[in-house]
Amino acid sequence: MTASLLLGRATAMGVSSFASVLILVLLTALCSSCGAGGCPGDFDGELLVSDWSGDPPKSALLEQYRAKSNFEKPENTFSEGFFGSIDVNESGRRYLRVRFVGHERFPVDRDYRLVLDRKIEFRITDIVPTNKRAWGCPLETAKVNGREVMIGHAVSFSREYGVPVQP
């Protein structure tokens, strides 16, 4: 649409009505860009481990597997750019925030194995997105070592769900 045509319509409709229609069109365009079903097929790559005590781990390894593969052969491995920090939520609960710089999003149709300090592991499976239109991909459910976990934009689970790494 040309500027003169838009200006002519704005004058005919009244400026406030035209502005309302324009805002509605822009919001519709923004929401429709959120992807098919509202979920782009990946989730926020941040992992939150609640009830963490002590310092952040010095090392972390995240292995990515084909879903339902029984963790036999990783497709990708991430350890470079590991960043761990301790935070406290509103209720005073400590948690570890785990990120891998350069890998801010991960596919929902994969399984993951997170190993911290080569001592404790968390197997993340059954990741199901909500498919609601939103920024990122809010998750509906996920499991860590077979237990249902808290979800949202990141996978969040308790430290007690971890198991010792088998030699």
Rank of each mutant, 00 (worst) to 15 (best):
G38Y: 00
S91F: 02
L48Y: 03
C34P: 05
I124Y: 04
N89W: 04
L24Y: 11
T11Q: 15
S4A: 15
N131R: 12
R105F: 14
T130Y: 05
R133V: 13
Y95K: 07
E148Y: 14
G8P: 05
E72V: 15
P164R: 01
G45N: 10
L61H: 01
S158E: 08
L27A: 12
G162P: 04
T11H: 13
T77I: 14
H103L: 13
R97Q: 09
S16I: 07
S4I: 13
M13G: 01
K58L: 15
S69G: 06
Y161V: 01
F122A: 03
R118V: 04
P138Y: 10
V21D: 10
V108D: 08
V98H: 06
D87C: 09
L61M: 08
V115Y: 01
R123S: 01
K119D: 05
P74S: 03
F78P: 00
L30I: 13
F100E: 02
R66L: 13
R99P: 06
V15E: 11
N76K: 15
V163L: 09
V144M: 01
A29T: 09
R9C: 07
F18K: 07
W52L: 08
G102P: 08
S156G: 10
E46V: 14
R123D: 07
T77P: 02
R110Q: 10
C34K: 11
A10N: 07
V149G: 05
A67R: 12
F71T: 03
N131C: 12
P57G: 09
F122M: 05
F78V: 09
R99N: 13
D111P: 01
G136K: 09
F82P: 02
S50F: 15
T77K: 14
S17G: 00
G136R: 11
R113K: 11
Y65H: 03
K58G: 11
V115D: 00
D44T: 10
E80W: 07
R97I: 10
E121A: 00
K143Q: 14
P74C: 02
R147N: 14
G35M: 08
E140T: 08
R93E: 08
F82T: 05
F100M: 04
A12V: 06
C34Y: 12
L139M: 12
Y65N: 00
T125I: 01
V98C: 05
E140V: 04
G41V: 06
T28Y: 13
V98E: 02
S69K: 10
D111M: 05
P56Y: 00
G81I: 05
S50Y: 15
S69Y: 11
S4V: 13
L6F: 12
D109L: 09
E63K: 07
V21C: 05
E72I: 15
G84W: 00
W52E: 03
R147Y: 11
W135N: 14
G35Y: 02
N89A: 06
E121W: 02
D117N: 11
P107Q: 12
R105C: 06
S33M: 10
R113A: 00
V128R: 13
S85K: 15
V163P: 04
A12D: 02
F100D: 05
V149W: 02
N76P: 00
L6M: 14
V98G: 03
L62A: 04
R99S: 09
G54D: 13
G92T: 01
N89G: 04
E72S: 14
S33K: 09
Y161S: 03
G102T: 05
V21H: 09
A36H: 13
K119T: 10
V144Y: 04
S85M: 14
G41Q: 08
